[in-house]
Amino acid sequence: MTDTILKVKKLSVNFGRDIILKNLSFEVKRGEILTIIGPNGAGKTTLLRALLNIISYEGEVVWKDGIKVNYLPQRLSKEKFSLLPISVREFFKFKKPSEDDVLKMLKEVGLEKRVLDKNPAELSSGQFQRMLIAWSLIDNPDVLLLDEPTTGIDVSGEETIYSLLNRFWKERNLTILMVTHDLNVVYAYSTNCLCTCKERVCYGPPKKVLTPQALQRIYKTEIKFYKHTHR
């Protein structure tokens, strides 16, 4: 049995006279991985912010009652942390978990106890991103909203992040909504894909809807993407 946990109907967002999102409708069912793709300025981050109700919008965004939604914004950079005297332990304390839970969670993302006393900015980019994943999962959300979770990480680090997310998705019955630029990730992991360029261009399982024509409509240029079929 699948149940719908998010219904979005005719969502529009305007900043003054600029139309950022227009008439977007889609649904997310429990256990889905929905990837959101589109060119720069297509309103992907704005979409996540509207779903979280932190900006005003027109239309309907309805979450199922009692659903816990966690968010990892894109601009959560190490630089921000380097300006603050804050330890990883204190960063986790914002969510009030027990120290045991924090250690367990860190272990699950492959981080050792000694990172607890470090400033998040002292971690490597890959460690930092894994720490953030652990942080976003520590209070057991039903849904995770991720905005380009691998910005600034090298290819092998990227692979680790996505396989970690995939593992947690399976183990914890998570629902994931993720903005990404990486079409490989879209094909490999997502159950559904939403392509936007202010309006909805395509929506559905990636292998079905991400046709060369759709990609051309989104990115306004011809994308030659080789679909790996051996996975």
Partner: peptide
């Protein structure tokens, strides 16, 4: 204190919480 510190790290993150 901690709420304002978090909002300094990311205002969106704080608002989402």
């Amino acid at each position: 204190y901690s709420k304002l510190t978090l909002s300094e790290i990311s205002e969106d993150l704080a608002k989402s919480m």
